[in-house]
């Protein structure tokens, strides 16, 4: 039987009186590449934070490789995480190498400086994401796509088994997006990773991931692509344009009742 990387059982969460997640139950197999799809405000980022242990659900349980997220973190088994806006302060005075090394800080513990080995790990990861030449540049001086690569290197510097990415391509142009997906596939293979990615880009997700979870407060669909129009419309709550990628790309739009 395949190992379960993430198991979510009956998770519900509300802020004040507003329900954000409603009775979510899902299992993600180790080694898979899962895309979470849904409209704005569907609770996608919140679900990621619940998986990371940043937010505790009101009801239900999350297990990562059979253990609670906080317990896992306490043992130094860190989940690789690429937040939606990884550079909250664009003028922060540190170098690219410093950023990647940060991923190692929690593992090192208090009072200990990064060792030669930590630097080697960071530099190797920077080379893998194609950013070794920028190691000593200030992070804010890089372009959006370059920064994204650096933050992926940081996410991987904790030597994770699970990598979670929140809208990794949101600030990238089409070419940079494709490059990023290629890079993630490549890293997934090399490092034997389970990858969970949130996006609202239906086209990109269906081309690149193995499984799709359609989320809008609760889970509507969980299957391999392609997702049918009906499933998407249930999730998004409105008619959806779906760009199919056949031999000739064409746009399929539902005929509206006039």
């Amino acid at each position: 039987m395949a190992t379960i990387a993430v198991s979510i059982q009956n998770v519900s969460l509300s802020y004040r009186d507003e329900v954000v997640l409603e009775d979510i139950s899902v299992e993600i197999t180790a080694g898979s590449f899962v895309g979470i799809l849904g409209p704005n405000g569907a609770g996608k980022s919140t679900l990621l934070k619940v998986i990371l242990g940043l937010i505790r659900p009101n009801v239900g349980e999350v297990l990562i490789f059979g253990q609670k997220p906080k317990k896992l973190r306490g043992k130094g088994q860190i989940i690789g995480y690429l937040p939606q806006r990884p550079l909250t302060n664009p003028h922060f005075p540190i170098s690219v190498l410093d950023v990647v090394l940060m991923g190692r800080y929690g593992l090192l513990g208090i009072g200990r400086r990064p060792s030669q080995r930590d630097r080697e790990i960071a530099l190797r990861l920077l080379a893998q994401v194609g950013m070794a030449a920028h190691a000593h540049n200030i992070i804010g001086a890089l372009s959006g796509g370059e920064q994204q690569r650096v933050f992926i290197a940081r996410a991987l510097s904790v030597e994770p088994r699970l990598l979670i990415m929140d809208e990794p391509t949101i600030s990238l142009d089409a070419c940079a997006q494709d490059e990023l997906y290629d890079l993630i596939h490549q890293l997934q293979e090399q490092m034997d990773l389970t990858v969970i990615m949130v996006s609202h880009d239906i086209g990109a997700i269906s081309r690149h991931v193995g499984d799709i979870i359609c989320l809008n407060r609760r889970i509507y669909v969980h299957q391999a692509p392609p997702i049918g129009r009906l499933g998407l419309e249930k999730t998004f709550g409105c008619s959806v344009e779906y760009l199919f990628h056949g031999e000739i790309p064409h746009r399929v739009v539902r005929i509206h009742d006039v």
Binding site: L52, L54, R73, G74, G76, I78, I79, Y81, P83, P86, T88, N89, F92, I94, D98, V99, M102, G103, Y105, G106, L107, L108, I110, R113, P114, R154, V158
Partner: peptide, 17 residues
């Protein structure tokens, strides 16, 4: 190093342990 990480991104610092 913890202070630098916290100043840079508190949420990420927590995730990294």
């Amino acid at each position: 190093k913890e202070l630098v990480f916290l100043s840079f991104d508190e949420e990420m610092a927590w995730v990294c342990g």
